[in-house]
Simulated assay, not measured.
Amino acid sequence: MKTLIVPVILALLAGCATAPVEPVGPRVDTSLTAKGQSSRARFLVLHYTVADTPLSIKILTEQQVSAHYLLTDAPQPVIYRLVDESRAAYHAGNSSWKNYTQLNNSSIGIEIVNAGWKDTPAGRVYAPFPQIQVDALVGLVKDIVQRHGIAPENVLGHSDIAPQRKQDPGPLFPWQQLAQAGLVLWPDANRVAAVRPVFEAFLPDVAWFQRKLATHGYAIVQSGLLDPQTRTVLSAFQMKYRPADIAGNLDADTATLLEVLTTPANAPLPVVPPAVITSPVPPLPPAQVPLPPPAPLIPETAPAPAAPLPVPSPAVPVPEPTPVSPPVPAAAPASPATPGTL
């Protein structure tokens, strides 16, 4: 009897192993491709973690904050992919650039392991980015922007898209190296030299700076006053393009950079005092007006999701975690926070 049962069982098992699996539901034909489509990723946002690699991994994988990639600071840097690029990661938080808001749904986020900054008796000291880490980042960014068609003007820092809350990746981040690789919008040196005498002769008023900052992409209330929110946005701009002085003051150098960056490459630069120069300003998203001044840093553990704002892309809004990284340097000194980045 046993000799008869064993072959039967083996035959049944063999049949199960080779039987085709019937699909559940209607069959999906993937042989056709629509011409009218594009990547959901319009922006690439760079952050620093303000934590070492083990803590960064723990926070970005076990808490609600996340990023698509984590780049370590090891002697041979490692790039971890934590979220598939087809999905939204929770790295941008309450954010905007030009007429886009809630950029989690339209961006790819890269967290870079970096200590951020610390306050010392001699002033605030920022942690550098090792060149080998920068080289790995340039390769990663180049691969991402090529595959998704992300324009150089949309490769941004967290301080660009949330200047009232964030300062990462900070004034020591080598933006110019990314620009030399064609990855970041950068002012042409010849045009900067040509227009600087105009602003050295006559410095525009606060309203002019606010208009230019908004035209460049920042969310800024057009108050006409050199108020805290204006200084904070000026500092964010200076951290990227003129990191030697990030005090958020009005000066000819900052005005020159703003004029060049907001003037099309094929358009003439001004040769008259800026008091008579006007430029169109894109409307700010209603949810971004007014922006509150930077709040003191409050240590947080598991961030609670916030209600989503309207997004201009067709993506479905997702819950947003609350902020956890340090405020911009123009605000009152604070302590570094845990990474993540909302």
Rank of each mutant, 00 (worst) to 15 (best):
V184F: 03
V65R: 14
A67K: 05
A306W: 05
D135M: 04
L291Q: 15
A193M: 10
V206H: 08
A17I: 08
V24C: 02
A92R: 09
I132E: 13
D135Y: 04
P197A: 12
A302N: 10
S235P: 11
P317M: 05
L10Y: 05
G116F: 04
P130H: 03
D160Y: 01
V65I: 04
V78N: 14
K2C: 05
G93T: 03
L261E: 00
S107H: 05
Q64E: 14
A41S: 12
P169Y: 08
L183E: 08
P286L: 09
D160I: 01
Q64G: 00
S96A: 15
L183M: 10
A255D: 06
G36R: 11
L137Q: 09
D251A: 01
S96Q: 14
P312M: 07
P128M: 00
R211H: 15
V272M: 12
V272F: 12
P75D: 15
F43Q: 11
Q146H: 12
G182C: 07
R147P: 00
P163H: 10
L257K: 01
Q76I: 10
A331Y: 12
H68F: 07
E320P: 00
A267W: 02
Q102F: 11
H68C: 09
I5D: 13
V221I: 02
P290C: 07
P293M: 01
Q133F: 02
P152L: 06
A17G: 13
V206A: 14
P286Q: 07
A127C: 00
V195I: 10
V316L: 12
P333N: 05
E200H: 01
P77E: 14
A332I: 02
L103A: 10
T53M: 11
A194D: 08
D135H: 08
A41I: 11
T230N: 04
T120Q: 04
